[in-house]
């Protein structure tokens, strides 16, 4: 694991989990024995310029954000949207774009934005024109 570029192996096998595993397809992420070579243990948080902030007051749990998130960063448990995984979110903004509620339950803010402040200043419901 501490090898440098020059010590690359010709063929390498990485184990996603520590020890023998069964039934991964039905085991949620928090219950999995991730090994340190699983990218789940890494973070791409420093890629972000903007971050999504989740306002659960308006969420209808439609799960559009969950299905369309490319980075497995929308955490859904028991058919409910729980929050955003900021270790793996790259800030692409798809979740906020596909959110169907009015006002949106997910909005993009600058990375340094304070979450409480963002929630306090959440936009009002947009009235339909005419």
């Amino acid at each position: 694991m501490n090898n440098g570029w020059n010590d690359f192996e010709i063929g390498a096998m990485l184990r996603s989990f520590d020890g023998a595993v069964n039934g991964i397809a039905t085991t949620l992420q928090e219950d999995r024995p991730y090994s340190k070579s699983n990218s789940f243990t890494a973070s791409v948080a420093d890629w972000r310029i903007e971050k999504p902030i989740f306002n659960k007051d308006y969420c209808i749990d439609c799960q559009f954000c969950w299905i369309y998130c490319p980075d497995i960063s929308i955490i859904s448990r028991d058919k409910k949207m729980v929050g955003v995984d900021y270790d793996h979110c790259k800030g692409c903004g798809i979740c906020a774009e596909v959110c169907p509620t009015n006002p949106k339950s997910l909005l993009m803010f600058a990375e340094q934005e304070d979450e409480d402040k963002a929630l306090a200043g959440w936009p009002e419901k947009e009235k339909k024109e005419n």
Partner: peptide, 18 residues
């Protein structure tokens, strides 16, 4: 119902955002 799936593909891959 689909959203109860446990993903077998992990984040912190290096694909472009979006």
């Amino acid at each position: 119902e689909f959203s109860t799936s446990a993903d077998r593909f992990e984040g912190a891959n290096l694909l472009c955002p979006g």
